[in-house]
């Protein structure tokens, strides 16, 4: 599967995935973010392991014309161990969301591709956190 330019996914060991998807305010062009507007990043945390896992994430953006609206880290999400069904297990999921906004008059020439990079920490029950070596990112086109 090929990702669209504004979504990404990343594994972090322990059979977990973190997928991010950006929903912008421009209908039909979900990666575009006009000035003074904000869009939403949806985080899907997927746990395929035999352990309950806690997912925490924080965002950094560049350039400064793109910034997070509200706290950089949404509340950590606890995802139960994978469900054991008929013959094999199925992953369980948790969701978090945060908003990114396009700050006007920051001296950048529009349109411009901005990025948001997410640092994810996954913590098993014995409290030894780990992070993926390559964090997931989203690319967003800042427009006038």
């Amino acid at each position: 599967m090929t990702n669209s330019p504004c979504e990404d996914k990343q594994a972090a060991g322990h059979l977990v995935w973190h997928k991010v998807k950006f929903h912008g305010p421009v209908a039909g062009r979900k990666c575009d973010l006009p000035e003074n507007q904000s869009g939403t990043v949806d985080h899907e945390f997927i746990n395929g392991s035999i352990y309950q896992q806690t997912f925490a994430t924080s965002v950094s953006t560049q350039p400064t014309a793109l910034r997070v609206a509200g706290p950089a880290s949404p509340p950590p999400v606890v995802v139960t161990k994978a469900f054991k069904g008929w013959l094999r297990s199925q992953p369980t999921t948790g969701i978090a969301a945060q908003a990114l906004e396009h700050v006007p008059a920051t001296g950048v020439v529009l349109p411009l591709t901005a990025t948001a990079e997410f640092t994810t920490t996954v913590t098993p029950p014995w409290n030894t956190p780990s992070s993926p070596s390559t964090p997931p990112t989203v690319s967003i086109t800042l427009t006038a």
Binding site: G13, H14, L15, S49, I50, Y51, K84, S89, T128, P129, S130, S131, S133
Partner: peptide, 12 residues
């Protein structure tokens, strides 16, 4: 039953 082996060398 389920069994899981993890190589944690990249983080630990």
């Amino acid at each position: 039953s389920s069994w899981q082996w993890d190589d944690l060398s990249f983080s630990q």
